[in-house]
Design a protein around this nucleic acid. Structure first.
Lengths: 258, 258
DNA sequence: CCGCTTCTATCGTATGACTTTATCGTAGAT
DNA sequence: ATCTACGATAAAGTCATACGATAGAAGCGG
């Protein structure tokens, strides 16, 4: 485990053996140490690395199959699937990405998605929010404003802020994207860690979004959220650029800079 | 199987036993015949309906767990999860919804998501499309224009049109939403079947989107796609209203009208 | 009535045997 | 020589069984 993952409790039980095997395999696939070739460690891995029964292994494979990471066909073997098949928006798949080095293109893609989705979510939230929603969003904002930047509780509050906005939308399909937005935020916060100025500056933006939602002003909420996302992207890319520039390897290894 | 599903080949193999069991359980959960209570048809189902070994059953459960439909906790049992946990955007989960009666709220939610996402996708596509992308989109449009409305090949072409636009975005995260958009389209086409006028009228809209993408005019592509989605939503809701009005049951049973 | 112990149901894991499927190579036919 | 067909083969899929662990219920005693 390289990076603290504050997202919602994953559906997958990491205590259990099959969960660990699934994660191990998933990370191997995501990092690229297993290409679109075979995942042959079948009997091999069973005996060499961790002696794990066929049962646990197969159940792990079933999980990965369900998330599109592998494809198992009778005679030809169990292969890692091409990336186009992966359910990249699956909470577990997103979470597994945190075990790998940051992929700049993927982070950009996620931000782009967030840029499209979150302003619309803010608009909906402004139109449909109940007082309970406001309470939840406001509580999260307080947690952000009162906490020290990049402390765990503060990060949790930040994530909760954005999640609460999605919850206020009353749209089950849209809400499934909150995990992707949360993951984007986590990448962002992780990369920006240490840049207190960026964090402090983002606080008023959050407050303005909150106020617009309270006022039921959808257009304003959308516009402000768009601004927030764009600012976040810019500072994140700047941090990423710094990391890239200061590292010799492919892409920054953030976990070392923490 | 009540409804033809033309979406991309699901990652899940329906030939295999565990796949069938997974689908059976999934449909039971989605239709609501199994609430947030237990899913214990374990021994029951094993002996009564189809005698299936525990292995196959467990692997099916693992698949559903991976998609958030059930939660298996160590000793307390395997329960159907509350809907908030479902990965509604998972291709399989979407596909399983076609086995159930249409859920108007969910279809509205999907359309809302599509309304947010697809215009943005069209904008990106206009900015980034290659000539190969154009060829693919154009071929799909030809298929739509040349085919007879609501024929299988025509429907496939329609789906391919929208999918090709997502593919042109060069954004892996965004592309994962294409399955949701495809599912929305399928619901839409299914509900509108018979309404040839609506189909014919939508053709120029598609062409205009195509032209804007060819011209690399992102704003125009976005605006036209937004119009297309809104029109589609309106005619779909009208059809849904008709179905609701003409049926005695909860919501229309579209599969009978086909 | 409450707390402790026991008991049972159920998931997790392991193992071995058998079945099904699909690939691939070889042998036979054209 | 090329094509076809069939059988060997390898890997996933399925089944049956067994055991361990533990959450939660039932029963017991204070």
């Amino acid at each position: 485990m390289r990076v603290r993952d504050f997202s919602r409790p994953t559906t997958l039980n990491p205590d259990r053996l099959f969960g660990q095997v699934a994660q191990k395999l998933a990370v191997a696939i995501i990092t690229g140490s297993v290409r679109a070739g075979e995942v042959l460690p079948n009997e091999d891995d069973l005996r060499s690395e961790i002696s794990v029964s066929r049962t646990a292994y197969r159940e792990a494979v079933k999980i990965l199959t369900a998330k599109g990471l592998v494809e198992a066909r009778p005679k030809s073997g169990t292969r890692a699937a091409p990336r186009e098949r992966w359910n990249l928006l699956d909470p577990d798949v997103l979470s597994w990405h945190f075990e790998a080095d940051p992929n700049e293109k993927f982070i950009r893609d996620l931000f782009e998605l967030r840029r499209f989705v979150e302003p619309s979510a803010a608009r909906l939230a402004a139109q449909r929010r109940t007082s309970a929603d406001i309470a939840r969003i406001e509580a999260a904002y307080r947690g952000m404003a009162d906490g020290t930047p990049y402390a765990e509780s503060t990060i949790r509050a930040d994530l909760a802020f954005h999640e609460a906005i999605f919850a206020a939308c009353q749209n089950a399909a849209l809400q499934c994207l909150s995990s992707a937005v949360i993951a984007t935020l986590q990448w962002s916060l992780l990369l920006k860690t240490g840049d207190e100025a960026a964090y402090i500056e983002s606080l008023p933006d959050h407050e303005h979004v909150l106020l617009a939602i309270i006022d039921r002003d959808g257009d304003l909420a959308s516009a402000r959220m768009a601004g927030l996302v764009i600012d976040s992207l810019n500072t994140t890319l700047a941090s990423l650029g710094t990391h890239v520039a200061t590292e010799t390897g492919k892409i920054a290894r953030i976990k070392h800079t923490k």
